[in-house]
């Protein structure tokens, strides 16, 4: 959930257009614009966006390799005919 407001230890978060109040006392230093994991009204962790990006890059690379392998197999199959 995206943090929209921080007022001391309380804040507002938003997900899919729904806003709600959240307690921020367990994630000191969280800033507006960051993403948090929320459970039972409390933010429990701040999303590490660099780590998220690294994980997504692994997925993108895997998908790219599969697409290339398929393309290669497809052109080979084509040339065999």
């Amino acid at each position: 959930m995206k943090v929209l407001e921080v007022n001391g230890t309380v804040g507002q978060v938003e997900i899919g257009g729904v806003r709600r109040a959240v307690d921020l006392s367990l994630v000191a230093g969280v800033k507006v614009g960051q993403f948090v994991v929320v459970h039972a009204g409390f933010a429990l962790s701040v999303t590490d966006e660099d780590e998220a990006q690294k994980t997504l890059e692994i997925f993108a690379e895997m998908a790219r390799r599969v697409a290339e392998a398929d393309a290669a197999a497809g052109s080979k199959a084509g040339s065999d005919q």
Partner: peptide
């Protein structure tokens, strides 16, 4: 796998 949310040492305040 959940490196974007779970830190090795977790949430010390919690």
């Amino acid at each position: 796998q959940y490196t974007r949310a779970a830190l090795p040492l977790g949430n010390p305040a919690a």
